[in-house]
Design a protein around this nucleic acid. Sequence first.
DNA 1: CGAAGTCTTGAATTCTATCAATAGGGGTGG
DNA 2: CCACCCCTATTGATAGAATTCAAGACTTCG
Lengths: 243, 243
Amino acid sequence: MITLSTARTRPSTAGMMGNAAAITARFDAAQTGATLPDHLQAIQSYGARQHYQRNETVFNQGDPADQVYRIVDGTVRLCRHLPDGRRYIMDFLLPGDVMGFVESPDQPVSAEAVTEVSLIAFPRGCFDRLARENAGARHQLLRHMSESLQMAQQHLFVLGCQKANERVASFLLRLADRLDVMCGDRIDLTMSRQDIADHLGLTIETISRSITALRGSGVILVPNAHQIILRDMAALRVLAAES
Amino acid sequence: MITLSTARTRPSTAGMMGNAAAITARFDAAQTGATLPDHLQAIQSYGARQHYQRNETVFNQGDPADQVYRIVDGTVRLCRHLPDGRRYIMDFLLPGDVMGFVESPDQPVSAEAVTEVSLIAFPRGCFDRLARENAGARHQLLRHMSESLQMAQQHLFVLGCQKANERVASFLLRLADRLDVMCGDRIDLTMSRQDIADHLGLTIETISRSITALRGSGVILVPNAHQIILRDMAALRVLAAES
DNA sequence: CGAAGTCTTGAATTCTATCAATAGGGGTGG
DNA sequence: CCACCCCTATTGATAGAATTCAAGACTTCG
């Protein structure tokens, strides 16, 4: 399964905002080595669990950015739609990932469920309080933004410099990395070819041909259309020609 | 000229780090509506003025990220080099822009002078103190990161969805926007065709042909290779097909 | 004025998109 | 349980866009 190990303590039904003292206490409890997802997990009970069906929208581009989210299960795509039907997928979010941390009043992108999705939504004000009162969380927020930026830059390189085969190789490697998958393990491609194509700036046919080519050269195995086994990660890395 | 109006108060020769009390006082003086560049300007005397020739390197990918910078004059490119000679330019920095705000210990990209460049370099520790002691600066840092991310996402769309002509149109529009240029004003293209190509994921020949095509359709005027006049911004915007 | 570098233009090639048809997979209903 | 259908993915053929290769024009600067 694509699911990362994510602790799912008590499926909270808590409302939007608890009492201030309790929140503060919980905030202080956050340990120092915690990542941003960890900090959100620490205030989990102040968030609302939500479920979405495949292709359902979590929020739309232009919606007020008044919540932040932590993915519990499933895959989410962050994308931008154009009037003429074109679509660009900025990134896929996996279990454990967080989203919605923008300074602008409106969401700059849409978030849609690729698979069935379960997530926790926190009121923006609740998280702001966390950031205000907890220096660790504040720092992790900054770190998260910085990492997102670097990821985006890495992907800019992929789109700016790489050919189709290289892009697909890069995509598989990054997915494997995020899923903590080793050589020989199976990767579940939860997203469609169309999703991958819109993420890599290619067409479904080209994605399909690239995967076929990778299979042909023995670099990957393809048990079925939505599962891939990385047989030779070194070769993949050479193809991806990273940095 | 491409130069934005940037106040250049006394060309400071101050060393790396002043006395703590003085710094703190200056930090507090920072006004609330200030942007991140403003905040840096407020502590200008603690930075060191530096000059670079065309194509000189400010810092390299992998160098320790121990300074932050504010561009005073000239154009800087943020880029990534590959062993095989490929290069990708993430972005161009113009006068008034800031760079170097990353959480990682190393610089993820290189910074190179496109033109002659004059900038002010601040020790990272000095800026960290500012961020620690001044909530306004902290918030502006976050805002800056958030905006950088959105810019990167916008550019991902350009590379992922747009054709050559559309990319060039987008590039010109963004440049005009950043330079506060109105319809009919002249834009100085301080960067070479090769730079633009490496930024848009195209080749110099394609850039050249696209510019010729835009000129042919009367959307822009091209007095010379490094100056462009936007004659019909509406048409450009249609071409760019933004969002 | 001449030389080097940069930009433009042209022709041929290559890569990817597009168009079209087939194959596979999962779910539904008989 | 199987047959059928719909949706998605694959494969093939063709067309189109951008790259590559190559030559010529323009700038800039010594």
